[in-house]
Computed example of a mutant assay.
Amino acid sequence: MQPTAPLTCLVVDDNEMNRLLLEHLIELTPQLELRASFANGVDCLNFFTQGGQVDVLFLDIEMPQLTGLELVRILPEPPPDIVLVTSHRDYAVDAFDLHVTDYVVKPVELPRFLQAVQRVVQRRQAAPVQPRPSLAAAAAESEFIFVKVNKKLLQVRLDDILYVEALSDYCVLVLDKQKLIVYSSLRRLEERLPVPRFVRVHRSYIINMRRIESVEDHMVRFAQVEVPVGKSYQEAFQRQLREF
């Protein structure tokens, strides 16, 4: 009989001592393998939106910028098994409405931690986890993405995006009525946007095929704005136009 592979996990807590304690408890648990540890929910969300995957998420609730409950609501589907670890009992009802696997009150002791791990194991044995869909597929199903703007996560409808332009280490999302400067590389945004709906037409541009008004002389027009089609992208773009 082959030994069971350990469950991969993340720790997210803005308190360093709490993070170190959870990391130590994971080290004491042969069923678990720590992949990463984060001090805030934003970094954890970036881990998942950039393609990261784990089996279990040990998550604090009260954190700046993005609370644990807010993070659970916007994780890509299907999420990992979530064990909330908090100093407060008041969030229990909200937590289980979100179908978390367990709710552990601090200070966390090893017997209670192991009980939470066992609940994760039993849940996964009862209902095997389906493969996580690609980020582009998840975006296509949800019809929106979350992007980081001025230290906040904003929900943006895919249909509202005309095109995306690279700007140094940032990107500009050009929408119908506004422009958003997003803390992300163009490559990372490209991985999150569904194809063939969104297509790279230039090293600095991704366009929304549904919002094209006209194409002429290797330029794509959106309302009063034109986006160039790079020479190396022209053949693939023409093929996308025929097949879209």
Rank of each mutant, 00 (worst) to 15 (best):
V105K: 04
R210F: 09
E216L: 11
F96Q: 06
A36R: 10
I145T: 03
K152M: 13
D97W: 10
R203K: 15
F113Q: 04
R211Q: 15
N18K: 11
V201E: 01
V11P: 02
L20F: 06
A166P: 05
Q224F: 09
F198D: 06
Y205A: 02
Q178N: 10
E235I: 11
S168C: 11
L66I: 02
E190G: 11
M17D: 14
P228E: 08
E23P: 08
G230C: 00
S87W: 08
R242P: 02
V225G: 00
Q234W: 15
A39T: 13
E213Y: 12
S142W: 07
L98R: 02
A92M: 15
V199I: 15
S214Y: 05
M63E: 04
V147G: 07
L167N: 13
A5F: 08
V156C: 07
D81H: 14
A137D: 14
A139Y: 01
V12I: 12
S87Y: 03
F146L: 02
P79F: 07
E191F: 12
V100N: 00
G51Q: 11
L135A: 15
F113I: 02
Q224D: 15
A138L: 12
I74V: 13
E226M: 11
A39V: 00
L84T: 03
Q115A: 15
E109Y: 12
P128A: 08
V85A: 02
E27I: 09
Y233K: 01
Y170A: 02
T4F: 10
V195C: 11
R221P: 10
R239D: 14
A92K: 03
I74G: 06
E213I: 01
V105A: 05
S232G: 09
F38N: 08
L25V: 10
A95G: 12
Y163E: 01
R188V: 12
R200E: 04
I61V: 07
D102V: 04
V215Q: 08
R19P: 01
D55F: 02
